[in-house]
Design a protein around this nucleic acid. Sequence first.
DNA 1: ACAAAAGTGTTCTCGATACACCCATGC
DNA 2: GCATGGGTGTATCGAGAACACTTTTGT
Lengths: 222, 222
Amino acid sequence: MAFCYDYPHPAVTADVVVFTIREERLAVLLIQRAQAPYAHHWALPGGFIEPNENLEQGALRELFEETGLANVYLEQLYTFGKPDRDPRERIISVAYIALAPIERLAPMAASDATAAGWFDLNELPPLAFDHQDMIHLAHQRLRAKLDYSTLAFHLLEATFTFGELQQVYELIRGTAIDKRNFRKLMRGLNWLEETGKTRRVGQHKPAKLYRLTASTPLNPIR
Amino acid sequence: MAFCYDYPHPAVTADVVVFTIREERLAVLLIQRAQAPYAHHWALPGGFIEPNENLEQGALRELFEETGLANVYLEQLYTFGKPDRDPRERIISVAYIALAPIERLAPMAASDATAAGWFDLNELPPLAFDHQDMIHLAHQRLRAKLDYSTLAFHLLEATFTFGELQQVYELIRGTAIDKRNFRKLMRGLNWLEETGKTRRVGQHKPAKLYRLTASTPLNPIR
DNA sequence: ACAAAAGTGTTCTCGATACACCCATGC
DNA sequence: GCATGGGTGTATCGAGAACACTTTTGT
């Protein structure tokens, strides 16, 4: 009880909704809680902010400690602060959205901290606290920003095929997109350039690999 | 020093960027600080969250206590948490946007707490803390949401003329809008209905008064 | 009569959508 | 040769932008 104040202070945490594309589905990263409250329930990675780190750093640190993930794109989502959202004490949580291609997330499997796992966004287990709300809001936000930002590219590696890119858009929007219209749209944005290389993946025509041009803003446009 | 914890807790505040239209300009409400830090500087209204209120309640309570304002539209903006943003202690601030027509804000003048005043958004005084950043972000957000939400209507009374409505849009966007295109756009949205009444204001043709239809979502659409 | 804001339609451009076939590859 | 995803163009529709004059009122 070494930390005392003149008036009550809440605890502040950062929780992270990490999205990736896994097996052709939008997936979210969850960890299994070891202790009460909500022992054995699944929850978002996250934890308490340290006195000398800013909120983003705290979110990234907790994410790394609990899941071994690093090197993800991070963006603030919303701050949840209902007085009773945690039964232990007043905890205010700053929620973040994180995005990364699954290929960059190999370390996760190696992490031996808590059990962690990817869950299809449409097949989530019961979740601790208000984490269900956080994921729902995160998905909404992701969909809304898809059309006027470069968010989708954070779910891909540095080079990618048009097919992969279109799949990201389709998975986030939840609807199919016409191939020709999609390519025309992307051409119009002038965000992409050919790398000159191709990738062969199945028993069919190799696909050209693209990358973002140097001038494309990789942070959200609005 | 009655409130003690096992590990350090930050303080949490809510700060509110209140916009209104005043004398044909977008204006922000500021209060003058009495004490250090930043004594005599202008700052956003706001203050510490109480243990048993949620964040929105705290924002509204502080706004009322410091300025006498109530009955405003409120929406969360962003959470600011740099460790050194307040020199006294670690303070994390959840910033809110509030909107209200100036007519509803008469009580403010009567408030005798701290000095409070409206400032033209383009003529802000030096501000305490990172409140400059908050206002800037709030303005950006307001502009961005203008086109796909009913935010603008919170700056008007329940009935209003087309001219007043267009002025709100022009002030937030910062550009002129063609009258005929604007009316066509609004007609297309089906948000408005005539009240049957008119308002005469100068020595010219009286303007029809409109209101939002009952089915128009007054909370943000996205 | 005139000053001042209210009110009203048409044209054009561009972005969004709908839609079908050939190509390169591995088996 | 066939299955598989890669790659390409045209026609249509609707939203958004440009643009000027008449109406009603008070003085």
